[in-house]
Write a protein that binds this DNA or RNA. Structure first.
Lengths: 247, 247
DNA sequence: ATAATAGTGTCTTTAAGACAATATTAC
DNA sequence: GTAATATTGTCTTAAAGACACTATTAT
């Protein structure tokens, strides 16, 4: 308790006790998406700690006040911990907070989603987990039951990603650095769960100005295909018109 | 400290101390927008407490763990406290957390924006404030310097609102229940800071299916104008094409 | 009548959507 | 040659954008 009412801001801050008020538990959770063998996958870890010990969950955890520069840093730290690499895209989705989502009490989680290529990633359970694995997504859901409200969080993250497939170039960030147009369009098909006209998508993607030819070709199948990459300044193009698919 | 490692979830929860970990301070801040005399305004309060005592700030405050059902509830409570009414629209924008934004330590704020008609609102400073007033916005900024990082938060909330003006019917929520098409189009002009073709906007707004005629007219000026209101199921129409204005 | 604001009609442009046709590889 | 996939071309449609025009009030 304060000795007396402080008269200046310096006095106030000197006597301020951050633990005087009840604060919610604050965590960051990340939905890390990739595409493996033509299907969308999300990275899950198997919890080795209470609560929900033994259950699958989104990677996440408490903000580390001494280590994290900001919320994005917490999300990136979690990502690095589990995959050893940086994501091609990381984006905050929403913050959910209430009394019921965590049996430990009033808690709040800042939900992120990340996109990365599954190539060259070695999964690492890290502290507090016994396993880390890619799980196939069907309609924004995953096979096993998830800890906390993570099933709901996952659905929301997927919904955001799916929606952005209708008007941005984001989906390509689940691919490796070089890819063909057909590969890129297929990612859109997977996310929007609908067939898309090839010539239309081709024109649309090229018009974005975000793609550049690498100069080489993908050989091996039938007709070889040009390889593309995202242009450096990858300013994340937003189309003026949405695809009607995936509504 | 725990006596020993718990074996069951129930044991774990019984011995769990939420204050064992350092948690960030968690607040909710709300940018409440309206249009008064053809200009966009935001509701600010003058702080009567440290830190930033005497400075203008966005209405907001700590989550009340005993009272708030969720983060949206915290935002609605703040809104009610200052205006006495409910907002026509309330939406979460983003969560910002870092060590530098609050001199009291690592803190996190969940930013919301709200839209309401200024009509029939009596402003109320409420606890912790000496004044509450509408401040005119110019380019997402307000005259007086703001407490904390609120100038940045305000800019971000405004950017979100401006962006949504390009592809949603949201802007109308700053109007009273009944309005003319010209009034509605003018809100878009104010938000996008650009002139808009009247016939084009008229067709666009009517095609949304979100408007219904009230049956009465606004008289008084020159030619009377039909009055409209948002149709009940106001499912928040999203246009498939964006306006080019305001890019 | 004129001024002022509300509201309609029509043309152009752009990009999505549909689909036919051609090109390049492997076999 | 055929199969398979990559790539190009052309037509339709819908809505934005531009702008001319008509309608209804007040004075």
């Amino acid at each position: 308790m304060m000795a007396q009412t402080p008269q200046t801001e310096a006095e106030f801050l000197a006597s301020y006790d951050p633990k005087a008020f009840d604060a919610p538990l604050a965590t960051v959770d990340v939905s890390i998406f990739t595409v493996i063998e033509g299907a969308l996958h999300v990275l899950l870890i198997k919890r080795d700690e209470f609560p929900f010990k033994g259950a699958w969950a989104l990677p996440g955890g408490f903000v580390d006040l001494s280590q994290d520069n900001g919320l994005d840093a917490t999300a990136m730290r979690k990502l690095q911990e589990k995959t050893g690499v940086e994501a091609s895209h990381l984006e905050q989705v929403q913050t959910i907070g209430n009394l019921s989502r965590d049996p430990r009490g009033w808690s709040l989680t800042v939900l992120y989603f990340a996109l990365m290529s599954a190539e060259s990633v070695t999964l690492n359970p890290g502290a507090g987990a016994t396993e880390a694995a890619w799980h196939k997504l069907k309609g924004g859901q995953v096979e096993p039951p998830l800890a906390f409200d993570h099933a709901k969080l996952l659905k929301r993250a997927f919904a955001r990603l799916q929606n952005k497939a209708r008007y941005t170039m984001l989906p390509g960030y689940v691919l490796a650095e070089e890819f063909t147009l057909t590969e890129l369009i297929n990612i859109y098909r997977i996310l929007l769960e609908e067939d898309l006209d090839n010539p239309m998508m081709r024109r649309r993607l090229l018009r974005s100005g975000m793609l550049e030819e690498t100069g080489s070709m993908r050989e091996g199948g039938n007709r070889p295909a040009k390889l593309y990459r995202y242009a450096r300044a990858a300013s994340n193009h937003v189309f003026d018109r949405n695809l009607e698919a995936g509504k």
